[in-house]
């Protein structure tokens, strides 16, 4: 099968599935990872709300999830995926392991961005009588915004890469096509087409992230 209109449609569909998986799981991962990352910073020793025990537990949980390779996690959480989505095949089913893998990763990215905020600025906020919540919402997040956006671009492209792995278990998207046609059937043209598309998508996400971050950065 050469590249023709039907393969074109298939690839286009794969692209949409990939975008769907990436965008929805990144968003969901941020819903969990952003607060988690902030909690990791503020509860740490010397943070604005030190809770050493909680901090330790969260760190262990994050490290545990981070250390399981995605491919294994993907299979290991199949029962959970089935429980939540009712199926283990297709793009929507892939979103579940993607979120589980990405949330702790996002938490670490957020943690490192927030940690970059100058301690002096936080101290200034405290000296003005700001509550910890105000420090988080008015100092930490706005001051770390450029770095958080860069982190967002990194997270998105990483999750995009993860989503391609989902092809192994019939997860849909470009990765699925590349494995089924390019790998199992030796159709190099389709393989190349999907890979090129993936590269373009990664470039676009990365570029958009960097541009927004640069525009938001008032430090220079």
């Amino acid at each position: 099968m050469m590249l023709n209109s039907s393969t074109g449609i298939m690839i286009a569909k794969g692209l949409l599935e990939t975008l769907y998986m990436t965008v929805s799981s990144t968003s969901a991962a941020y819903l969990i990872g952003l607060p988690l990352g902030i909690i990791l910073v503020v509860t740490a020793e010397g943070g604005i709300l030190p809770r050493p025990a909680l901090n330790k537990i969260l760190n262990i949980v994050v490290n545990l999830t981070r250390s399981v390779p995605f491919l294994i996690l993907l299979i290991a959480v199949l029962p959970i995926t089935r429980f939540i989505t009712g199926t283990t095949i297709g793009s929507t089913a892939t979103i579940v392991p993607l979120i589980i893998a990405a949330a702790p990763f996002v938490a670490r990215l957020v943690e490192s961005s927030i940690k970059e905020v100058d301690k002096g600025i936080i101290e200034a906020g405290l000296s003005m009588g700001a509550t910890p919540f105000e420090i988080i919402t008015k100092v930490m997040i706005p001051e770390a915004k450029p770095s958080l956006i860069v982190g967002g671009a990194i997270a998105t492209t990483t999750i995009l890469g993860y989503s391609a792995m989902a092809g192994i278990v019939g997860g849909g998207g470009l990765g699925d096509i590349a494995i089924r046609y390019g790998y199992y059937r030796y159709q190099n043209d389709i393989m190349i087409a999907t890979v090129v598309l993936l590269i373009v998508v990664v470039q676009v996400f990365q570029d958009i992230g960097m541009k927004i971050s640069l525009k938001q950065d008032k430090r220079r």
Partner: peptide
């Protein structure tokens, strides 16, 4: 603490806020 303000060697201004918005910060709080 609102009655005891502090200024620092490294200024510690919010870098992502304009001069005016920096002054608005304690007022928001």
């Amino acid at each position: 603490r609102r009655g005891i303000c502090m200024i620092f060697q490294q200024f510690n201004l919010l870098m992502q806020r304009t001069a005016e918005k920096n002054i608005l910060f304690p007022l928001e709080i």
